[in-house]
Simulated scan of single mutants.
Amino acid sequence: MGLVWLLCGFVAPAVAAQPSPAKISDFLSQVQAAARTLDYSGVYIYQQGAAIQSARLVHVVDGTGERERLEVLDGPARECLRQNDVERCLQPDHKLVVVQPARSDHFPGLMLGDGHTIAQHYEWKPSGRSYRVAGRDCSVSELLARDHLRYSYRICTDQKTHLLLKWQTLDARGHLIDQIAFGSIRLGTDVPSGSLDSRWNTQGWKTETESGTPTDLQARGWRFSLPAGFAPVVQLSRKIGPSHGVDQLVLSDGLAAISIFIETFDPKRDQNVKQGGMRQGALNIYRLRLASYWLTAVGEVPAQTVREVARAVQYVPQAAH
Rank of each mutant, 00 (worst) to 15 (best):
G183I: 03
V234E: 15
A256G: 01
V301F: 08
R129S: 14
I24W: 10
P13V: 08
V140Q: 06
K239R: 15
T209L: 09
G115Y: 09
V234N: 05
R154H: 04
K23M: 05
E210Y: 06
L70C: 14
L110C: 06
F230Y: 10
Q235T: 12
E123Y: 02
L112Y: 15
Q83W: 08
Q179D: 05
T169S: 00
D62Q: 08
Q168I: 09
K274C: 03
Y286S: 04
V60K: 10
A145D: 02
H59F: 07
I185E: 00
A319E: 08
H94S: 13
A181S: 13
P232K: 00
A231M: 04
L90D: 01
F224V: 05
C156Y: 15
L96S: 05
E142R: 13
H94T: 09
Q318P: 07
I240G: 01
L288N: 10
S259L: 03
I262R: 12
R173A: 14
S237F: 00
T64H: 08
G254I: 09
G174N: 08
Y122T: 07
S127D: 09
D62W: 12
V58I: 12
G75S: 13
H106T: 13
L112H: 13
L251T: 06
S54N: 11
F224Y: 14
Q271S: 12
G188S: 11
I155Q: 09
R279Q: 14
Y151R: 03
F10S: 04
D266W: 12
V250I: 07
Y40D: 11
S252T: 14
L6N: 02
R67E: 05
H244L: 03
L196S: 04
S211V: 08
A219Q: 10
A219D: 05
A219N: 06
R154N: 00
Q91F: 15
C80H: 06
D26R: 13
D266A: 14
Q91L: 14
L251M: 06
R78C: 12
S41Y: 00
C89F: 14
